[in-house]
């Protein structure tokens, strides 16, 4: 297998895929004539890799609303808005790679029970790529979690934050599945960021003097 051409830039990487013999899988991006496109890729030549990559492509389609370009075997995906949401693409890929491939793929709902309160968090599409974050069962003793969730969504997917807990994609297009996918992570932003940080720090060699 040849190394990918210089037009491809790596977006995210899972160094050891527990669902496929610890191979490394990655999401790459290139700018094509029809807009940015992602490539789900592995350099491993093991026989089960083709099936695994096809699963990841399908998971990104179902869970995050990506369009599949040229059939799942090609490994190519793109956002339906034909732009590129860098952080959202990274997180969608990481979430897809976590899934147990023996389980059926289902899109997530736009509401979740909050993990830190008795509230239910709902995200309402407003059109033009905007979403309102709402919380129910808000009382004087239990203030709404919606502002925190909206801020976390904005950080996780590079959304703009407006008044009244409205977040919006800069492309102006709807991304319902993507927002639903991020909603669970948005409830514990700190844990999500910590997980990323720990992942990125693995495999960095430090001098003996700096080792613990």
């Amino acid at each position: 297998m040849d190394v990918l051409g210089s037009n491809w830039r790596r977006v995210e990487l899972v160094p050891m895929d527990p669902h496929c013999g610890d191979i490394t899988v990655a999401l790459y991006r290139a700018d094509e004539g029809d807009g940015p496109v992602g490539l789900v890729h592995s350099y491993s030549a093991r026989p089960q890799v083709v099936e695994r990559l096809a699963f990841l492509v399908e998971a990104m389609r179902v869970l995050a609303g990506f369009e599949v370009v040229g059939g799942s075997a090609a490994g190519l995906v793109r956002f339906p808005c034909r732009t590129w949401h860098a952080l959202a693409a990274r997180r969608a890929f990481l979430e897809a790679a976590k899934l147990d491939p023996s389980e059926p793929l289902t899109a997530r709902p736009l509401q979740v029970p909050d993990t830190r309160s008795e509230q239910t968090i709902r995200v309402e599409p407003l059109g033009g790529g905007a979403y309102a974050v709402r919380a129910d069962r808000v009382t004087e003793d239990t203030p709404s979690r919606a502002p925190a969730i909206a801020a976390a969504l904005a950080k996780l997917a590079e959304l703009s934050v407006g008044e009244a807990e409205v977040v919006a994609f800069p492309c102006g297009h709807a991304h319902d599945a993507l927002v639903a996918l991020m909603l669970k992570r948005a409830q514990n932003l700190r844990a999500a960021l910590r997980e990323e940080e720990m992942q990125a720090s693995r495999g960095v060699l430090v001098a003996p003097s700096a080792q613990e």
């Binding site: 210089s6 830039r9 790596r10 990487l13 160094p15 960095v204 060699l205 001098a207």
Partner: peptide, 18 residues
Amino acid sequence: ECAIPLQTPIENLRAIPQ
């Protein structure tokens, strides 16, 4: 400068000889 991180993108390493 030192042993590279194991997750370093290949395209960045190929950029050095380029």
